[in-house]
């Protein structure tokens, strides 16, 4: 993991290790994200208004309830600019006595008791909240056969979901921008889930440059995965199950090499195994031209 501002990282770590005694909050509100009910308690109403503007507050059926005691850096006498003064996007994650700790450039969070978190978020932009949610949610989502996948997701002309995976810079946003009139779920974060034995996709709702062109709670059957590789030609090649497994694993959001939770790793593997049982993955060599989509449609 890369950390450029080690002084700030140490400060955030110390902050999380301090004994937590705050117990009075003026405001609280419930948010619902992919079946997780998130009760946010804080002392600044504008904080809740900002969260509503980013994730909405439409009630939905929940399978898990989490409480978050939320602070802004300013409430701890740190400016948001100083709090986010880190160029690395890497997320540090650790577990002590079964409780989770997480630090990224714009958030620091600690699980106080099971399902109850203390978090400090820079909320000038939505990234602080989204990074926190990408750290917080994956283990809960896996319990209900869901995952956030670092991917672009576009609907085919038959309204089947196509996932595009690849490392940062591989062309996820590019393939999305070339999709023409096709509906876009997201260019960076998308939800992959299994419901009634059907592998499905929906918008991630946790960041990305493109606004989904379908409702956040919509779902579409997944037709195929494509691993992106920029090239001077357009070509689609089938890849082996283990290579597909490795590539989908590396696209999971919320998992890092620092996280050595074997149970979580095992759950991820079982989920991926089920997803890839009947859904193919291809390697897509593509030019940054709209013709790439002809090759994609040919294999569907």
């Amino acid at each position: 993991m890369n950390i450029d501002n080690s002084t700030l990282f140490t400060l955030k770590k110390e902050l999380l290790n301090q004994s937590y005694s705050h117990s009075t909050f003026l405001y609280s509100r419930c948010f619902y994200i992919h079946g997780v009910e998130l009760t946010v308690c804080c002392n600044a109403e504008y904080t809740l208004d900002k969260i509503v503007s980013w994730v909405g507050e439409v009630p939905s059926k929940s399978h898990h309830k989490i409480t978050v005691y939320l602070f802004t850096p300013e409430e701890l006498d740190i400016s948001t600019k100083d709090w986010c003064d880190e160029s690395s996007q890497d997320c540090w994650s650790d577990t002590k006595d079964g409780l989770r700790y997480g630090i990224q450039r714009d958030f620091a969070a600690r699980e106080l008791t099971p399902d109850c978190f203390y978090a400090v978020l820079g909320l000038e932009y939505s990234d602080g909240l989204y990074n926190f949610l990408r750290w917080l949610l994956p283990s809960y989502l896996l319990e209900s056969q869901q995952a956030i996948i670092h991917s672009a997701c576009v609907l085919s002309n038959k309204k089947e979901a196509l996932f595009f995976l690849g490392y940062s810079g591989a062309g996820k946003t590019t393939i999305t921008s070339l999709a023409g009139a096709r509906d876009i779920l997201g260019d960076d974060m998308n939800r992959l889930f299994i419901s009634d034995n059907v592998v499905s996709a929906g918008p991630g709702g946790v960041g990305g440059a493109f606004e989904p062109s379908v409702p956040i709670d919509s779902s579409f059957p997944v037709k195929a995965f494509f691993w992106l590789k920029q090239s001077n030609r357009n070509q689609v090649v089938t890849i082996s199950k283990t290579a597909a497994f490795q590539r989908l694993f590396s696209s999971f959001v919320g998992w890092s090499w620092e996280n050595v939770d074997h149970e979580l790793q095992q759950k991820m593997m079982s989920f991926i195994d089920e997803v890839l049982r009947d859904t193919p993955m291809y390697e897509l060599e593509f030019t940054k031209e709209v013709d790439a989509w002809k090759k994609i449609e040919e294999v569907l």
Binding site: K241, M269, S270
Partner: peptide
């Protein structure tokens, strides 16, 4: 190591060595 058999092949995670 945490591992999974996929068809006849397998995928193994070596977290210590990333």
């Amino acid at each position: 190591f945490v591992w999974k058999k996929i068809g006849g092949e397998s995928f193994i995670l070596d977290v210590a060595n990333e």
